[in-house]
Amino acid sequence: MKLGIALSAAALVALALLPFALSPYTHNLMTLSFLFVATALAWNWLGGYAGQISFGHAAMFGTGGFVAARILLAGALPPPLAWIAGGLVAGAYALIWGHPTLRLRGPYFSIATIGVGEATRLVFTYWDKFTGGSSGLSLPMVPGAKRTLYWEALAFLALIAVASWAIRRSRLGLALFAIRGDVEAAADVGISATFYQDLVLFLSGAATGIAGGIYASYFSFIEPNDMLGFDRSISFVLMAVIGGVGTILGPVLGAVVFVLLRQFLIGSYPQLYLGLYGALLIAVILFEPLGLMGLGHRLVRRAAR
């Protein structure tokens, strides 16, 4: 435990000092990784802890991104507050569709989230006045802001990692794990599945929305098909599944692997990468449902024997 904290702190310091030595390309890739790791962790609160697999988290990523971008364009709030405002709107939006759909479990819930994600993407694509339609929104570039944003993204990731650990150990975490284990038995010990699932969806949606806001600030251009595409929703699922659903280290590892893989696939096989995502998802679920964490445990056990 103490070793884990020390290692995490050392990694954090190393990552915080890194931008002085990075090329702009790697700088972008690292910032993107921080945001992806953070969203994978936030997705995991719902998908891993509560066992409700969402294929629609891009809806909150996009909502948070566009709300923050609009606030920043209007000059109404400084960036961190604009991101938080975007996150709150995204969380509230998640509650609106989530409260009725979270009664569904397993594949039924997942299918509903696909519908929500796609519907939200279409609305944002045709809502020119708010999102700029398919030509998107451009935010003014501020010289030197990228380095600050790198640190802000890293700080956000650290916050989400700590929150993941805190939720796992809290009353909320116990309720979610019980709900994942058996939703009816959970009710029979006094757990309101509706309340705790709504709460975690709000938190997960809000965190995803904040990530969307930081993403918008960093890349200073967003458009609905990129922010809310189905491949973005899939990417959140993939990162957690590759790494190991329900764990904390898993989504972190998964996101790092995913970002590297994505960079390679988009560069080399731009037409095929979505298909390859699907193949990867199937392969992980078939051969090691607990992802890299499961594989690691298996190797450790084998070595011990």
């Binding site: 116990l174 309720a175 794990f177 284990g181 058996d182 009816e184 038995a185 959970a186 006094g190 757990i191």
Partner: peptide, 18 residues
């Protein structure tokens, strides 16, 4: 219907907590 993903103690703790 135990919570198969929780330990024996955590199962009882769920009852005591909620």
């Amino acid at each position: 219907r135990p919570f198969a993903n929780l330990t024996v103690f955590e199962n009882a703790l769920a009852g005591a907590t909620f």
